[in-house]
């Protein structure tokens, strides 16, 4: 084994100790910064929408609900909403649209005059079935695919966060 000079020994030792200190602070710091992104936000719940008898057949029934989330040191409530569209008297013959525009997440409104869903942000139009008629959205309106009718005749949808 060749002789290690004092200078080289100091160099290597400084490098190793510096590296350990850097890693001991650097790696936790990375976790510290990205921590909120690593949280599993998959909270789910059945959300009551309303009595089925109040929903007219063929006319989109608007609804909205509020989810309260604890974000850090604060409780933030977010509003979500959609439209129930009944096709016939059959209680199960319906679909539930999500009113969040698939373009950039504005909220679409039902226009009774034009019989379309209008997005106010970029003038997109969706058909009563949620298909894109014009404008920039890349895909039809999303649907709440899981729903159930309770014994009291109320419609509930299954909502999953994230």
């Amino acid at each position: 084994m060749s002789e290690v000079s004092r200078r080289d020994f100091i160099k290597v030792t400084t490098g190793i100790v510096g590296g350990i200190i850097g890693a001991a602070i650097g790696l936790p710091a990375v976790y510290y910064l990205i921590d909120p992104a690593l949280r599993a936000g998959a909270k789910e719940a059945w959300i009551p929408i309303g009595k089925l008898e109040n929903m007219e057949i063929g006319k989109p029934y608007p609804f909205s609900f509020t989810r309260v989330q604890v974000n850090g040191w604060e409780r933030t409530s977010t509003s979500r909403g959609g439209f129930v569209v009944r096709n016939s008297e059959d209680p199960d013959d319906l679909f539930v649209l999500n009113s969040t525009c698939t373009h950039l997440a504005c909220t679409v409104n039902w226009s009774e005059n034009d019989q379309v869903f209008l997005c106010p942000c970029h003038d997109a139009k969706f058909s009563p079935q949620g298909e894109v008629l014009s404008g920039p959205p890349p895909r039809p309106l999303d649907r709440f695919t899981e729903f159930r009718i309770t014994d009291e005749g109320a419609l509930e949808i299954f909502y999953k966060e994230g």
Binding site: P28, A29, Y31, Y32, L33, D35, P36, L38, G72, W73, E74
Partner: peptide
């Protein structure tokens, strides 16, 4: 990144740093 200099949230945001965020206690 997490601290808020407001009387309403300063204390809570530090509680959050200490208990809620990964390695917040270390930083």
């Amino acid at each position: 990144v997490y601290y808020t200099p407001s009387p309403d949230h300063a204390y809570d945001s530090i509680q959050y740093i200490m208990e809620g965020v990964a390695y917040g206690w270390l930083i």
